[in-house]
Amino acid sequence: MAETAQMQVSDEVAIRINNMNKWYGAFHVLRDINLTVHRGERIVICGPSGSGKSTLIRCINALEEHQKGSIEVDGTLLSSDLKNIDKIRSEVGMCFQHFNLFPHLTILENCTLAPIWVRKTPKKEAEETAMHFLEKVKIPDQANKYPGQLSGGQQQRVAIARSLCMRPRIMLFDEPTSALDPEMIKEVLDTMIELAEEGMTMLCVTHEMGFARQVANRVIFMDEGQIVEQNEPEAFFNNPQSPRTQLFLSQILGH
């Protein structure tokens, strides 16, 4: 499995983060983040609660503003220029912990909305694309229901399909399975694994260590707003270097 993971990584840089710092008021959330993600790479970010994992990936599509350093996505520099922000957002898909589907629209409308309005895709074509991705996440038969009628796992898969309909080149996941019951986690992870196997560039905040071992090229451990350790999954789990990583791993793998 590790081999298939290695194969698809190219030299092309998808995301380059340089000395990025962020403050919430006076609180220094992210400190000197340096991270380069290559196209096709799958990165899992983990770390204790409050360590700034969500904040980091939300900075990448400008849901949060960073105050120092630079973020470059697909060669576009993220600045306060709205044009650049819109360009980056339309290339970067994002899945949230609480799905954030649009409850007043059907599943199909959720999936076609952004392609129609942002990409100006004709409605018919957008619907075909949407059905394609809904089939991929294995819920085409729910297309005309509303989000409130679906289970949590189904909703998260719709959220993934909704992002994919924009044909993103990078996908960000913020704890996509942590609001789900155990039996639903698997169906979402399966979808994500499939996506990884197709070579999608992925940044994923998750505590699903099985998933990390299976698909990640790199695992990043964050604490107190800094990247404390990063390594290939085997080395990361079997031979963690920093004491903080060891403590964290012993806590989440311990029971």
Binding site: L63, F96, L101, F102, H104, L113, V118
Partner: peptide, 30 residues
């Protein structure tokens, strides 16, 4: 409305007017 609705609209690349008209206002008005 939960903040997540604004974030989902933003992350899909909708601009302010689109996000308001298609996502936020229909729900807020309801």
């Amino acid at each position: 409305l939960p903040k997540g609705q604004y974030e989902a609209a933003d992350s899909l690349g909708l601009d302010y007017a689109q996000a308001m008209r298609l996502i936020i206002l229909p729900q807020a008005l309801k």
